[in-house]
Design a protein around this nucleic acid. Structure first.
Lengths: 245, 245
DNA sequence: CGTCTCGTTGAGTCCGCTCAATTTTGGTGG
DNA sequence: CCACCAAAATTGAGCGGACTCAACGAGACG
């Protein structure tokens, strides 16, 4: 056992922690991709690596927003709560995603890890100073925010107008497309989150999520595999069902 | 009748069209607020004023995105459609709001006027060139995108987890707060959009919207006034109902 | 005055929810 | 390696809130 174990022991890419950004394996996926070598070094000066287990709170809605994050591995969920405990998950972040786009002085949502996760932590003030220096980075961040906004609108369409089956199919396709954009195969789809998380993301209950998976399984459209993976057998069918065709 | 009637006749602030930006009455509300006088002049060089009646299409989802807009008066709705015609309105824009935050090469949603509307139209390429020149403006736009993102998350909570009554109450409060932020009274609330638009914004049907208004009216929480105005009689009660308390 | 659109109201249905009971999974210790 | 337990997922039964379908009323407009 090492003298300190902030979780680094299980990180195969631990080199990233000693040379924080230059050797970062996910740099091309994220904000940092916009930067030159010397700019990356400036970023490395202010960044702190952070590793967390699953189901840990990163920050809570209303907390003073004094840091931004970049997810370098793992999955994170963002959510908002109603006073009586009803929860809406507004997004799942994966490797390369930026955490902290929507915030003023305080965070507008809570963030929790789903799986064990590595984060780059940027103190907010220093980050803002850096943004003023590097318009390219600012631009990149703006473009990411634009994409987020477009995704948010898709999600509104889903929540407001789609049936349970359409929601589940859309969800599977979203995960599939996301992992293929990240350079993985589109199939099988890795689904690390619980039924409860899926339900709170899609505006359903865990029972309905479960029943809908069963239906899709029975109709041979998908098959559940080990390790939280789902094989989409009938990709075209799922596509059509996602839009109600 | 004037020789040309692109709608200007009904615009009391028609001066804005002759000195496009310098004299713009809503400049402090929007992107342009970030700019110096000489920068505003540069912006004025590329802007076109545009006036439209109600229920006109500004652009459609999938159209090539070659312009951005600023709403200088009136109300605009943004929406997405499913193949079978189901519609989700993702937002209502009013005076000072920026139109075109979420887009790549093509628009991610359709935009239609609700009431007669004035727009500043910015050709996209020229706008992008200007953004590179004026980081302040870029920054302002980023900050607006952040706010939009936070609002989108609130809307997801509403769509995914709130009941019909909670949705209607939240909607009224949103309109009330928006108009008080614009310097108007918080009450009565101006509601220019149809029941169908409200329904498609809240993920309900027109019948349910109508029934819920009737309930709130019956319970003395609100009263409908002439001119599409709604008086919130029990502001605290509506607040509580908006969050299910 | 007739027509058309929009909003309201009523009656009945259904999809997804609630409540409850199993079954399965994954982690722990013997 | 297996037994045990708690947590998660699945399945069942019945209910209810919002939907569908339909009728009716109220303005707006020609």
């Amino acid at each position: 056992m090492p003298p300190f174990d902030m979780g680094r022991v299980r990180d195969k890419g631990a080199a990233a922690e000693t040379t924080p950004c230059g050797a970062c394996p996910v740099r091309t996926l994220t904000v940092c991709a916009a930067l030159e070598a010397d700019e990356v070094r400036r970023l490395a000066d202010i960044v702190q690596m952070q590793r967390m287990e699953g189901n840990q709170t990163i920050f809570a809605e209303g907390d003073q927003a004094d840091a931004l994050f970049n997810v370098t591995s793992g999955t994170v969920k963002l959510y908002k709560l109603l006073p009586d405990g009803r929860r809406q998950i507004t997004g799942f972040l994966v490797t390369g995603d930026f955490l902290g786009l929507a915030m003023n002085e305080s965070y507008a949502y809570s963030a929790e890890t789903v799986t064990p996760t590595s984060l780059c932590r940027f103190p907010r003030r220093k980050m803002e100073a850096l943004l003023d220096e590097f318009p390219k980075m600012q631009r990149r961040l703006f473009s990411m925010a634009s994409n987020e906004l477009a995704a948010a609108q898709d999600q509104m369409l889903l929540l407001g107008r789609k049936t349970a089956r359409e929601k589940i199919c859309s969800f599977l396709l979203m995960l599939s497309q996301r992992q293929s954009r990240r350079g993985h195969k589109e199939n099988p789809v890795y689904v690390p989150m619980s039924r409860a998380d899926i339900a709170d993301y899609l505006g359903l209950t865990t029972e309905t999520v479960s029943r809908t998976f069963t239906q899709l399984k029975t109709s041979q459209a998908i098959s559940l595999q080990e390790g939280n993976r789902i094989q989409i057998a009938d990709m075209d069918g799922i596509y059509d069902m996602a839009e109600g065709v």
